[in-house]
Design a protein around this nucleic acid. Structure first.
Lengths: 101, 101
DNA sequence: TTGACATGCAAGTGTGTGCTTGCCTAACGT
DNA sequence: ACGTTAGGCAAGCACACACTTGCATGTCAA
């Protein structure tokens, strides 16, 4: 059972958030692509195994789906669980209005 | 500086999410009120100190503001940091309808 | 088949975190 | 003043988690 609670925990780690950012920018990347771009673009220094384990967490949370094809495994983003978070705590009445972008 | 990263970590704990739920339903509660209602309404069994520490985390994340008045400390919800989360990863095509928790 | 490539799997380690325990301070009512 | 109420502070413990290390599996090209 991939509870919604897993999505919250998945977002707790900055590396996993970077992975989501990276998949937002370029969906369907392989593990090696992700590691490479996380290092070069996002300035992280994570090993392949570390990223792989983060992807396990993201998959369990339903935020990432894996698609195996030959010896490659492509990773696809799914932001559906995040919409639930947005709906859960509505904006306060007469609260601070969000700045236009 | 209350980094945005703290908000993500703050949401990782189910008890803290219950606190946010409780403050959404009834804003400005004291510590004892929160403990009582979390036990009776939400079925949790958390001590006063535990809830107090959770409130520390939520305050550091900017999700809760404290207002001292006499011997009472009222807690107020601030969902502004959550809007940032919603904007970060936009929703893809027709989102699947998620069943509530 | 052989070798290189892309990935998966699992045990061990160190740090972080949620919770308890115990005591302390401050504000009210009598 | 005294006791009660509401809350704060800090140390210690047990578990979870992120990461490493090492090896195994599977796929493709030659």
């Amino acid at each position: 059972m991939t509870g919604v609670a897993d999505a919250y925990k998945a977002l707790a780690d900055p590396t996993r958030r970077a992975i989501l950012d990276e998949l937002t920018e370029r969906d369907g990347q392989t593990l090696f692509e992700l590691v490479t771009r996380l290092v070069t673009v996002h300035g992280l220094s994570s090993s392949r195994q570390a990223i792989s384990q983060h992807l396990d967490v993201l998959e369990a949370a339903g935020l990432v789906h894996r698609r195996r094809e030959g010896r490659y495994t492509f990773h696809h983003l799914d932001t559906a669980p995040l919409a639930e978070i947005a709906r859960r705590w509505p904006s306060p009445p007469g609260g601070s209005p969000d700045p236009p972008e």
